[in-house]
Amino acid sequence: MARLQAEQIDVSYENKQVLKNISVDIPEGKITSIIGPNGCGKSTILKSLSRILTPEEGGVYLDGKSIHEMKTKEVAKNMAMLAQTPDIPLTLTVEQLVSFGRHPHRKRTRKLTAEDHASIQSAMNDTGVLEFADRTLDSLSGGQRQRAWIAMALAQDTDLLLLDEPTTYLDMAHQLEVLELLQQLNEKESRTIVMVLHDLNHAARFSDHLIAMCSGEVQCIGCPSDVICKNVLRQVFGIDAHVVTDPKSGKPLCMTYDLIDRTPASATEISQTN
């Protein structure tokens, strides 16, 4: 397993600071979800962890090595990243798309091996897109296309899997299929998974570890019961939530909520209210 850490990173877009002194240590072999209101920096921290963005201050480390000093293929053999809106030609077939996930394992002139083909077939089967293998991406529904992109990430066969809103465009049943698939990959193969999720109940149900963000800062880190609670949701999301224990999963469940003043609080204020 690979260990991923960020230490005191600052990230800005067009001279506007988006992340402020962020430090996170991703638990190995666990599922971590990043939650928070729109524009709080969730996707930015995921892009920073995956080396898509370079912090102005601080560093990101993979097994103790600075990720920005490692070769691209070395990083790609340890970490797969699925962006929210992947930049992929829609004229590709599903199988062609998924085969891109094998790129880090191939030499420049080498063709796909039997092992590559097995990984591609397995990834398509696990995500339910094997029947669409010969169809082009532009012929698929949004949900089918999303599962094909996830298959590409799975075919990369890495210990670390980072996903930015992997349930986007999926209906309720397919959202559960994807999240249950990720849970199975974690449980059976001990893959470390980090994802951005909007649905608080999905985050609580399918995660071991949560990172709650607000206004570019980490506000609360812990297990679902530590984060999905009345005080934290009030401070991070500006909602007055009724939280109960899910009788099936034993995880916290946000039953209903009302809006309150959304004035953001500091992490210190949150810790004092817990």
Results as ranks from 00 to 15, higher is better:
residue 31 I to D: 09
residue 263 T to R: 10
residue 218 V to S: 05
residue 245 T to V: 13
residue 167 T to F: 07
residue 54 T to Q: 13
residue 239 I to P: 08
residue 164 D to W: 15
residue 82 L to D: 01
residue 21 N to E: 13
residue 156 Q to L: 06
residue 248 K to H: 12
residue 88 I to W: 07
residue 158 T to A: 09
residue 200 L to V: 00
residue 257 Y to K: 06
residue 70 M to Q: 13
residue 188 K to G: 01
residue 269 E to N: 05
residue 177 E to S: 07
residue 113 T to W: 06
residue 243 V to K: 03
residue 257 Y to F: 09
residue 183 Q to C: 09
residue 257 Y to M: 07
residue 139 S to R: 04
residue 155 A to L: 02
residue 153 A to K: 15
residue 127 T to V: 07
residue 16 K to W: 04
residue 97 L to E: 03
residue 166 P to A: 10
residue 120 I to T: 00
residue 154 L to N: 15
residue 187 E to K: 12
residue 133 A to Q: 15
residue 187 E to N: 09
residue 78 N to E: 14
residue 146 Q to G: 04
residue 33 S to E: 02
residue 157 D to R: 11
residue 209 H to T: 05
residue 60 V to M: 09
residue 198 H to P: 11
residue 88 I to C: 08
residue 88 I to R: 08
residue 246 D to H: 14
residue 72 T to F: 09
residue 203 A to E: 02
residue 170 L to G: 10
residue 108 R to C: 06
residue 133 A to M: 13
residue 158 T to R: 12
residue 269 E to F: 00
residue 29 G to Q: 07
residue 43 S to G: 06
residue 213 M to H: 09
residue 83 A to R: 01
residue 243 V to T: 03
residue 58 G to K: 10
residue 214 C to H: 14
residue 74 E to A: 12
residue 91 T to M: 08
residue 214 C to T: 15
residue 196 V to Q: 12
residue 19 L to E: 00
residue 61 Y to K: 15
residue 100 F to Q: 15
residue 185 L to Y: 09
residue 206 F to A: 01
residue 249 S to A: 09
residue 189 E to T: 00
residue 129 V to E: 03
residue 90 L to Y: 12
residue 96 Q to I: 05
residue 10 D to M: 05
residue 154 L to M: 15
residue 25 D to I: 01
residue 227 V to E: 03
residue 160 L to K: 03
residue 115 E to L: 04
residue 215 S to K: 15
residue 248 K to P: 01
residue 234 R to F: 01
residue 174 H to I: 00
residue 212 A to S: 06
residue 97 L to W: 00
residue 16 K to E: 13
residue 116 D to Q: 05
residue 128 G to V: 11
residue 238 G to F: 05
residue 110 R to Y: 08
residue 146 Q to A: 04
residue 152 M to C: 05
residue 82 L to W: 12
residue 131 E to I: 08
residue 51 R to A: 14
residue 87 D to M: 13
residue 201 N to L: 05
residue 27 P to Q: 01
residue 260 I to S: 04
residue 111 K to H: 10
residue 11 V to P: 10
residue 230 K to Q: 12
residue 108 R to D: 03
residue 227 V to N: 00
residue 61 Y to T: 06
residue 31 I to G: 07
residue 79 M to D: 02
residue 134 D to W: 08
residue 267 A to G: 07
residue 189 E to S: 06
residue 230 K to H: 14
residue 69 E to R: 14
residue 210 L to R: 01
residue 6 A to N: 13
residue 193 I to D: 07
residue 38 N to C: 06
residue 38 N to T: 03
residue 211 I to T: 10
residue 79 M to T: 04
residue 128 G to W: 09
residue 120 I to D: 01
residue 43 S to W: 11
residue 202 H to G: 02
residue 32 T to W: 01
residue 57 E to F: 12
residue 121 Q to S: 13
residue 272 Q to N: 07
residue 78 N to G: 12
residue 57 E to P: 00
residue 61 Y to I: 03
residue 21 N to R: 13
residue 90 L to V: 10
residue 14 E to Q: 09
residue 102 R to G: 07
residue 271 S to Q: 09
residue 136 T to Y: 09
residue 5 Q to H: 14
